[in-house]
């Protein structure tokens, strides 16, 4: 079943290889053990990280800004709803652990906390907005 995705996610999917085309995204001739992890699997792993205050995962909240995958390597840029929140480093580490658990083939996982652009509620997925009564 297709998950509801925001426009931003769909746009990123177009450029980031999210979707059925992703497993073939490894460059020809790359060694098998350093395959490119499909962005959809990265995103699914990040969906297991939930903001406990809201009860919604960080992908649906629009806190994941960018996912970059290259052979054996995954890089994620994520944010928090505000720099005033002390949970940033904790959620970043939790995201990294979720990726390590779900993507054993990724030898290098790098999750960065970024603040620009600032998060706004408009970044939430349609499903998250609906759940919060928008």
């Amino acid at each position: 079943m297709a998950k509801p995705r925001s426009l931003g996610e769909r746009l990123r999917g177009l450029f980031g290889g999210d979707g059925p085309a992703a497993p073939d995204a490894a460059p020809p001739g790359a060694p098998a053990e350093a395959a490119v992890v499909p962005e959809s699997r990265v995103r699914d792993a990040l969906r297991t990280v939930v903001d406990p205050e809201v009860g919604i995962d960080i992908v649906a909240l629009g806190l994941v800004y960018a996912i970059e995958t290259s052979p054996g390597r995954v890089r994620v840029d994520m944010t928090m709803t505000t720099p005033a929140c002390p949970s940033g480093p904790q959620l970043r580490d939790e995201a990294a652990r979720a990726l390590e658990g779900a993507l054993p083939e990724a030898r290098e996982i790098d999750v960065r906390l970024v603040w620009d652009p600032p998060w706004t509620p408009a970044r939430m997925s349609a499903a998250a907005k609906k759940r919060l009564g928008w």
Binding site: D77, P89, L113, W115
Partner: peptide, 8 residues
């Protein structure tokens, strides 16, 4: 431009 948090 994105800025990294100064975690170090």
């Amino acid at each position: 431009m994105r800025r990294e948090a100064a975690t170090t």
